[in-house]
Structures are given as C-alpha cells and as structure tokens.
C-alpha cells in the first residue's frame, strides 16, 4: 500500500496526458451580457495523477470540472480525455459533488449501486465490490441503513463509494469535503489518500483549501478570480503516504506560503481601507 501500486496498466500511451486542456474558454450567455467563466485554461492531468485545482470562490473551477465531465460544453479551445474531445459524459468516470446527493428512498448500498442500475447490469455481480468499498471506507454495517441515518462525513463516504463502484479510471471531485467540519475533513483527507494509494486513479480534485490541495496532490493548479485563468501549476514533492502532521513540516509550509503569496498578488487577503 505504500507504493503507488496500481491495479491496471497505463491506459494512455507514454507521455500522453489523461486529460488535456488547451486554451479552454467557457462563456455563459446571460440576459445582462455574456459571463466569461474560464479564459484560456491550459493544463493537463497525467494518468493516475492526483491533481487539485485551487482557486477562490466563483473562479470557474467547478465549471472546468463540469466541462471535463461532459456536463457542459466548452466555448472555445480543446479539451480531451484520453486524446478524445469531450462530448458528453465519458464512460469510466466517477464524480463526487460537494453535496453527497444520495437518494433518500434507497438504502446506502442501493445508492452505491445506482450507476449499476443505470447501466442495466446485474446487481448481484456488483454487490460484492460494493461491500468491499463499504469496508474500505469504514462503512461496514451501514449497507442496509438509509442515507438520512448517517452523519455528513459518512454520507460523503457513501458518495465516494458510489463514484468508485465501477472502478473508474477518472475520478472527479468537486469540493467534496467543503461542507464538512474541519475534523471530519482531516479524516476524509487521510481516507481519500489511503483509497487513492491502494488503487491510483486519475483524480481531478476541486478545492478552495490551500492546505487540503497541498496535502492530497501530486500537482496543484492555482486559478485566478473570475474569469478563471491558470496562474501557476505547482509540483508537490512530498513522500506518500502523508500523515496529517506533515502539515507542520517546513517543506509543507513553503508550498502553502508560496500559494498564499500567489493569492495575495491576485489581490486577495488585502486589508480593507
């Protein structure tokens, strides 16, 4: 578990990024004039890389995730997944949203099996994997309970199981821990790292927490305020698995300070006159 052991070979040719964004623009038409959410966004996500996109609220980072997920079209530029331009939600993808969006009328296990139902596959063949995921995320025993019987952190774990059920190559996470309290968030960060190390997937992780992004990622993409542009891409060279106390090391502090400085130059954290 300590190595980045993988259960699959590379799915893209060497040197080819899993997700490739080149000069991506996203413009929303609106009655009061067009709103530019993304401008000239260019970066890539390598196969089996954990990449975070970090930016202030409303910088278009969630929009970018929706573009990769094929839930909304890009206005200009080029966006490919495995070398193929995105046109609609790709197979082999799992999404975790900020809210868990579990269906109250299904048990937790049935919620995790929702993608299986949508694909008209046999539940019987997937229930074993679902139970394994419950065990992996420390949810054993809660399979037949209802989502509304769980705490926020546990609900989000169920949502993660749901995203992982079909063993996707690409995992998209849109501020998945943003609604959780700080302690639960720490716990979930460790949990996610553990899951990722056990079975490395290509992860696009959206967050507005500097610490979270440095702690989890191989690389951090820093975005500017609206319209969102890429300000910097930072390689996080810290050994894994990372413990929570790595956040107190000077090396970690250097990354955080660097990113905070980027935000300061952007005009954030400015003292009000």
């Amino acid at each position: 578990m300590t190595t980045g052991a993988t259960s699959r070979g590379s799915v893209v040719a060497p040197g080819v990024p899993y997700v490739d964004a080149a000069n991506v623009d996203k413009i929303y038409p609106s009655p009061k004039g067009a709103v530019t959410a993304l401008r000239g966004v260019t970066f890539d996500i390598r196969d089996r890389e954990f990449l975070s996109v970090l930016g202030p609220s409303g910088c278009g980072k969630s929009t970018f995730l929706k573009c990769v997920a094929g839930l909304t079209d890009i206005s200009a530029g080029k966006l490919t997944v495995k070398g193929i331009p995105v046109a609609g939600p790709p197979a082999n993808m799992g999404i975790v949203f900020q809210r868990d969006i579990l269906l109250d009328w299904r048990t937790n296990l049935e919620n995790v099996l929702l993608p299986v139902d949508f694909r008209r596959l046999s539940r019987k063949e997937w229930v074993g994997r679902a139970r394994d995921l419950f065990a992996l995320l420390g949810l054993s025993g809660f399979e037949d309970r209802s989502p509304w019987e769980l705490s926020g952190g546990m609900r989000q774990r169920v949502a993660i199981c749901r995203a992982l059920i079909q063993n996707p190559e690409l995992l998209l996470m849109d501020e998945p821990f943003g609604a959780l309290d700080a302690l639960t968030r720490d716990e979930m960060n460790l949990e996610l790292q553990r899951v990722w190390i056990a079975d490395a997937k290509t992860v696009l992780f959206i967050t507005h927490s500097i610490v979270e992004s440095v702690f989890l990622s191989d690389r951090v993409v820093v975005m500017t305020r609206s319209p969102g542009r890429v300000l910097d891409v930072i390689e996080i060279d810290l050994p894994r698995p990372r413990e929570l106390n790595i956040r107190e090391t000077p090396q970690f502090g250097t990354y955080v300070a660097h990113i905070r400085e980027l935000f300061r130059q952007m005009g954030m954290f400015a003292r009000s006159p």
């Binding site: 997920a69 939600p89 197979a91 949203f97 969006i101 269906l103 949508f118 694909r119």
Partner: peptide
C-alpha cells in the same frame, strides 16, 4: 439540478431519470 447532473454523469437515459429519480 445536481441530482440530474449526477444521473447524467452516470449516463442515465431520460426514462431512467424519470422512474429512478423524478418519480420517487
């Protein structure tokens, strides 16, 4: 709307969205 996004990301058909999401 996020529930519909989720269903779409799982490539659910319109009919599936109706009887698995909207009706319940």
């Amino acid at each position: 709307p996020e529930m519909l996004d989720m269903a779409r990301s799982m490539r659910a058909t319109r009919l599936q969205v109706l009887y698995r999401i909207r009706l319940p």
